[in-house]
Simulated assay, not measured.
Amino acid sequence: MTQTRGAVAFRNVQKRFGSFTAIPDLTLDITPGQLVTLLGPSGCGKTTTLRMLAGLESPSQGQILIGGEDVTRLPADRRDVSMVFQSYALFPHMLVGQNVAYGLEAGGMRAAEARKRADEALDLVGLAGLGDRLPAELSGGQQQRVAVARALVLEPQILLLDEPLSNLDARLRRKVRTDIRELQQRLGFTAVYVTHDQEEALAVSDTIVVMKDGRVAQIGTPRELYEAPASEFIADFIGEACVVDGRVLSVANEIAQVEMGGVTFPLPARGAAPGPARLSLRSNALKVKTSGEGVAGTVASAAYLGDHIEYEIDSSIGRIFVVDDESDTLLATGSAVCLEVRTRGVALIPGAA
């Protein structure tokens, strides 16, 4: 296996649809053996990017490489990739094993060998012994795993997954995303995964590429994007943080002393200079207290959700969303509170003064 097998590179790729430019200028590298998620709101260009990688769309300009080979003008059937669609796309009249073996047989493999390989692939995804059933006899989660097995049996350089969990209910989504992640880590293949679901992206990815208006807004690990957003857009989109005004009082040794709502605390400076600043507050960044020091506020709404309480707090820095997972006492609307700043969940947003 070459060192470049499973590597992906976009070089100054542009995609136009008539007068509309969906992808203005994309340069991106994907490391072999990683699960990389393209994440963003509808219309951000993530699916167009995946379709260009699959060969289902052609770039208007630029270059795409897979495993070091220029595939920009190669048709889909000559690229060493397999795709898992959100609709599963299983043949309803074929048995599960026949579905998985279909691509191998279409490529010229003898039926007996193709079925043996299909059974091995079904075993990999936890569906051993189900090859003689029809797709309709399986659950939605099982059908999606059949689609993954059908893609993996071809041993592609890249596995492409386009919103693969969108047709599943919440509990099945958690189960199948765990299955996909465990399988990818165990086998070490390269996967490019498209979703608009932030939680899903955080759960499965080695690296997340957040896209906005056809451009890369930020690339990083799930922790980097969640804890150190590069812009207000990232802060709001990844985890729906509250973005508020503050002030950097001083900076020393890359630590900023920050004032927010009358409270002063240290934060990584992230290039900030003294002066006005914008801060990202995660829902767990503030602790709701009924007395003591902190940002003063009033409970605007409260909701008990079993293992935690969700509050909206009106304060001097605006309306803040806070999750309290330490107390089972539900504070009434109108209650006076103070918000203690915790050490995690607060970040300065670079260049957003």
Rank of each mutant, 00 (worst) to 15 (best):
G6W: 12
F10H: 04
N12A: 11
V13D: 00
K15C: 01
F17I: 03
F17V: 03
F17M: 03
A22Y: 14
A22Q: 08
P24I: 11
I30T: 07
G33Y: 14
V36F: 06
L39H: 09
S42R: 11
G43K: 06
G45P: 07
T48N: 02
L50C: 02
G55K: 14
G55E: 05
G55P: 07
E57Y: 11
P59C: 08
Q61T: 13
Q63P: 00
I64V: 13
I66K: 04
G67C: 05
G67S: 10
R78G: 00
R78K: 15
V81A: 13
V81T: 15
V81Y: 09
S82K: 09
S82G: 08
M83E: 01
F91E: 02
G97R: 15
A101N: 05
Y102T: 03
G103S: 09
L104A: 04
A106Q: 15
G107F: 09
R117L: 02
D119E: 13
V125L: 08
G129M: 04
D132E: 15
P135M: 08
G140E: 07
G141Y: 12
Q142F: 14
V146K: 12
V146S: 03
A149K: 12
A151D: 01
Q157F: 09
I158S: 01
E163W: 10
N167Y: 04
D169R: 04
R171V: 09
R173L: 02
R174N: 02
K175G: 00
R177N: 08
D179S: 12
D179C: 12
I180Y: 13
Q184K: 13
F189P: 03
A201Q: 08
A203C: 06
V209I: 13
D213W: 10
R215K: 15
A217P: 06
P222H: 13
Y226D: 09
I234W: 11
I234M: 12
I238G: 02
C242I: 01
G246D: 05
V248T: 03
L249M: 06
L249F: 01
S250L: 02
S250F: 02
S250H: 05
V251M: 07
N253T: 00
E254H: 13
E254D: 14
I255C: 03
A256Q: 11
M260P: 03
F265E: 05
P266C: 06
L267Q: 12
A269W: 13
G271F: 14
A273C: 00
G275W: 09
P276G: 04
R282K: 13
K287C: 03
V288S: 04
V288R: 09
V295C: 01
S301L: 08
A303Q: 07
L305P: 02
H308K: 14
S316M: 10
I317N: 00
G318Y: 12
I320T: 01
S327V: 15
D328W: 15
T329V: 15
L331S: 04
G334E: 04
S335C: 02
S335N: 09
A336Y: 07
C338D: 00
L339C: 03
L339F: 09
R344M: 12
L348G: 07
